[in-house]
C-alpha cells in the first residue's frame, strides 16, 4: 500500500478537491498534456459564457484528464466512505438509527454509481477506474482512513465530514462539465440530509447521559482537524487549483472553502453544546469571519502517503470484495451472453 502511494504521481482529489503531497508537487507528470496547448475556441467560448461543456463538445485533453481523475477519485471516495459508517450498521443502538444509517450508506453507493457514470461520459469505464483504485494508482479522500471507534463517530462523520463535503461540492453543481455538475446536484441534496442526520445524532448524544455526551465530544475532537484538512493545503501550496479554476472546475480556493466551513460550523457546535478542539476560535469582527489555528498538514500528508490508521484496511476490504465477487460478475456476463445467443437463435428460427 505504502509503495503505491509514494510512487503515485497523480494529484489527490479529496471529495472534489485536488491537492498533493509536497514530493508529488516536486515531480509533475511530464507525460501529462500541458494546459492550453490544444484549447479549442469553442471550448473557451463555452467557459466564457458560463455554459456547460457536454460530452460531445471539443475539449482540451488536459481538461478531460483532470476531470476523469477528479470524478473518479470522488466516486472512489463515495464507495470507500461506505466502510467507516458501514462499520456501525450491525451495531446501531436503535432500529430507527439502523434504518437511517443503512439508507445513508446505500446513498453513498448510489453516489458512486452516478459519479462513475459521469466519468464514463469522458471515455473511460468503471472497471478500469476500479482497477486504478485497487492498484493504488487513483486515490480516495483521506478522511476515510480514520476509524469509526464509537457510535458518535457516525454522527461526527455526518456533521463534520459530510458538512465539509457539502461546502466543497455545492460549487461543483456549477462546474463547467455538464454531467459532473448534474450528478453533483443530486449528490448535494442527499448530502445535506446526511449532514442533518449527523447533527441530530450528536444533538441526541450531547443532550443524553454523561457517557453519551463524552462520546460525542471525543468524536468531535478526533474528527475536527481531519475535516479541516479535507479542503486541502493553503492556497499558496496548491498548484493545481489555478488551472482548475481557469477551467471552471473549481470555483473557490481551498482557504475560502475552509473558512466558509468553519463559519458555518462554529455556531452549530454551540447549538450542540460541544466544543471544537481549537482554543483560538473566535469571531473576528473586522474580517467578518471566525479566526482559527492554522491547520498542521503534517498528519494529512502522512495519511496520503499511506500511513493513516486505516489505509491498508480500507483498500484491502475493497479489493477483497471485488475479488470475491469476480465469479459472480463472470457468471452474470456469461448468462447475458447465453441469453443474447438464445434470442438470436429464436429470431433466426
Amino acid at each position: 500500500m505504502r509503495e503505491f502511494v509514494t510512487s503515485a504521481v497523480t494529484v489527490v482529489t479529496v471529495y472534489g478537491n485536488d491537492f498533493t503531497t509536497p514530493e508529488q508537487q516536486a515531480a509533475p507528470d511530464s507525460a501529462a498534456p500541458r494546459p492550453a496547448d490544444d484549447e479549442p475556441a469553442s471550448f473557451r467560448a463555452l467557459l466564457e459564457a458560463d455554459d456547460r461543456v457536454e460530452p460531445r463538445d471539443e475539449m482540451p485533453e488536459a481538461y478531460r484528464k483532470t476531470l476523469i481523475r477528479q470524478i473518479a477519485q470522488h466516486a472512489h471516495s463515495e464507495i470507500i466512505g461506505m466502510q467507516p459508517e458501514g462499520n456501525w450498521i450491525s451495531r446501531a443502538p436503535s432500529l430507527r438509527r439502523k434504518a437511517i444509517l443503512m439508507a445513508k450508506v446505500q446513498d453513498e453507493a448510489g453516489h458512486g454509481l452516478y459519479l462513475y457514470a459521469a466519468a464514463e461520459t469522458l471515455g473511460v469505464d468503471r472497471a478500469d477506474l476500479l482497477d486504478q483504485l485497487h492498484s493504488g494508482r487513483q486515490k480516495y479522500s483521506s478522511i476515510f482512513n480514520y476509524p469509526t471507534l464509537t457510535w458518535a463517530d457516525v454522527g461526527a462523520i455526518g456533521w463534520l465530514v459530510d458538512g465539509a463535503a457539502i461546502v466543497n461540492q455545492v460549487p461543483l453543481c456549477r462546474c463547467s462539465y455538464g454531467p459532473y455538475a448534474r450528478a453533483m446536484v443530486r449528490v448535494c441534496k442527499e448530502e445535506s440530509f446526511h449532514q442533518r442526520q449527523g447533527f441530530e445524532i450528536l444533538h441526541t448524544l450531547s443532550h443524553g447521559s454523561d457517557a453519551q455526551k463524552a462520546m460525542a465530544q471525543d468524536a468531535v475532537n478526533r474528527y475536527w482537524w481531519p475535516s479541516l484538512m479535507m479542503f486541502g493545503p493553503p492556497d499558496d501550496d496548491s498548484p493545481n487549483s489555478a488551472q482548475s479554476m481557469a477551467w471552471g472546475i473549481k470555483r473557490f480556493s481551498n482557504d475560502d472553502l475552509r473558512q466558509r466551513f468553519i463559519d458555518m460550523t462554529v455556531p452549530q457546535a454551540e447549538a450542540l453544546g460541544l466544543t471544537l478542539p481549537d482554543d483560538a476560535i473566535a469571531w473576528n469582527e473586522e474580517r467578518g469571519h471566525y479566526d482559527f489555528t492554522p491547520v498542521d498538514f503534517t498528519e494529512l500528508f502522512e495519511v496520503i502517503r499511506g500511513n493513516g490508521p486505516c489505509n491498508e484496511q480500507r483498500l484491502s476490504h475493497r479489493v477483497r470484495a471485488h475479488e470475491e465477487g469476480a465469479w459472480v460478475r463472470e457468471a452474470a456476463a456469461a448468462y447475458a451472453d447465453k441469453q443474447a445467443a438464445r434470442k438470436q437463435t429464436e429470431s433466426v428460427a
Binding site: M82, M102, V105, Q106, A109, Y116, A321, G325
Partner: peptide
Amino acid sequence: GWWISRAPQLEEDVAMANIGLDQLGQA
C-alpha cells in the same frame, strides 16, 4: 446489512441495502 460495501458490484450494494431496509421496516 453485512453485505453493504462487500457486494460483488456496486448495484448489488444498493440492492442488498434496499432489501435489508425493507425487511427492517417490516420488522
